[in-house]
Design a protein around this nucleic acid. Sequence first.
RNA 1: GCCGACAUAGCUCAGUUGGCUAGAGCAGCUGAUUUGUAAUCAGCAGGCCCGGGGUUCAAAUCCUCGUGUCGGCACCA
Length: 602
Amino acid sequence: MSEIAIKYEDKIVDLQTAKELGLSGEPIELDNSPEALEVLRHSTAHLMAQAIKSLYSDAEFYVGPVVKEGFYYDFKTSAEIGEADLKKIEKQMLSFAKKKYPIERYVISKDEAREKFKNDHLKQAVLDMIPDEDVSIYKQGDFEDLCRGPHLPNIGLIRYFKLTKISGAYLGGDSKNEMLTRIYGIAFATKEALKEHMDMLREAEKRDHRKLGNEMKLFTFREEVGAGFPIWLPAGGRLRARLESLLFKAHRKRGYEPVRGPEMLRSDLWMTSGHYQNYGENMYFTKIDDIEFGVKPMNCVGHIKVYEDELHSYRDLPIKYFEYGVVHRHEMTGALHGLFRVREFTQDDAHIFCRADQIEEQIIEVIDFVDKIMSTFEFDYKMMISTRPDKAVGSDEVWEISTQALKNAMDKHNLPYEIDEGGGAFYGPKIDIKITDAIGREWQCGTVQLDFNLPERFKLEYNGENNDKIQPVMIHRAILGSFERFIGILTEHYAGEFPMFIAPTQVAIVPVAETHKEYAKLLSDKLIDINADSEIYAKNDSLNKRIRTAEKTRVPMIVVIGDEEIENKTVAVRDRRTREQYSMSEDEFLKLIQTKINEVNF
RNA sequence: GCCGACAUAGCUCAGUUGGCUAGAGCAGCUGAUUUGUAAUCAGCAGGCCCGGGGUUCAAAUCCUCGUGUCGGCACCA
């Protein structure tokens, strides 16, 4: 193992820089530590750039940073590069690596750098962003790149890497700018680590909810139906229904009232709410007898109309309405992604109308609710406070007060959070709950939004103790976010092996021979009585085949029924994970299923 | 929406530089078999090769415009 850099004042300093500045510190060896990988991957990005430059001589380079999933480099060339070219570039990289060019570093002034890269408009853009007077250049062979480092001492150290993805990426991350080509890659210090990483990706692929959803017949999409409109199949329907009914009970326990608003409302209302102006490009509109209607992208307006249906006293607050609200949003084609991003979805949505002095307790109550559910499913999640976006309604002052209120509530209860600057809803700041999918992508699920604007816009009020008219505060919240996304994430989280209480089918019953079919049906009926779904595998196939088929559906329990079982009133249980078999009495079995189904309450 | 890739049976995939009647496995149907814990055997059926338009003697294959999907970017539950 060789030394590649040193740690100096908690910073990684490469050997070239350390030598130049005469620094010394704890050595960093080339291993799979985060520090070493940072240096290795950064240098691999440069090696890739060198290879690209040699293959596409007009290539210009923007930035090539190390990121969570490896590294990338953004560049531009007149050549069309596709996935097939990655192999070619990898090969070129290896041949350069074999030459073991040392990576040299020197410093020049920014003006000199401008001159040096005068034919590269992307490097000029990079130079524009650098405030310093002097910049460093790294050189390997005849390839030079403007870079802050740190880098390996020699490109020969780069051996175990893979280019993983190619795509477009906007210059500076802004869709108004030109699009560059981006190639992602990954590198490790050892062959084993690289292999492990690739295995992990393959494993994640197996969990992909789109693949499992298809295999397990949970949901489907069809071209002739339209992009982004999921079709729920029977198995998915059962899973979803279980989740819905559990959650319904949980809402009722916490004082939420079920309500329901219409699917579309007159456009005037969307103007009052501000959706028309601030969210209109995501909405679908239609006309009925010359009056324009907007299909709801959110449920708040409907719930406001419920609130307006009667007068409210300060004694009645908080009032909590909930709805499994179907919403439609015009998502861009490129954003659609299985159940994670669709154009029609159902939110577990609720709106809490409360007094200003109830905000904190209400927010904390919602966060407790979220925690109850996420911990039941064993999800890690993190919370983000999102502040005022560019497109927003309401005064700065109101935004400041409401954002502060969210922070206060979190701080007071020692709840950790990150800040997402400008990520709020147009009507108020929010706390987002983000959970992670099988391959580490984070998805926003639950959300708690504090809103002083819609109550103002709709002139909502309640009677105070002195019979004065006071404006309530609105809290918008969703726990799962949407059934679609949440079930997608659940599918990946459990790799399709759903726990008993939400599994589409609780029990697979396999009768040994035809003569046991009748008894299987009786057992199935008993299961329905305790709210468990079962499927009887009585097709004209071998017993082995039917057990195999049942296994493949990932059903939590398989029971085999034959002469022995019928005679003794027992069932032969086969466990999903261990594939072990054991026998238990039918009564015990039914009790067990019942317990497993009922053990979860949010 | 942008960059790149892809679209063949219900599913997973073959199909050579444009050239015979487009194939396989699984699933489905029919029959035989009635099975004790991960694939019994045989037969049958199943295709506007994503959709329009074009090039060609000839198109699943080449071009073009759509639609959909995938990987990212941008945007978001």
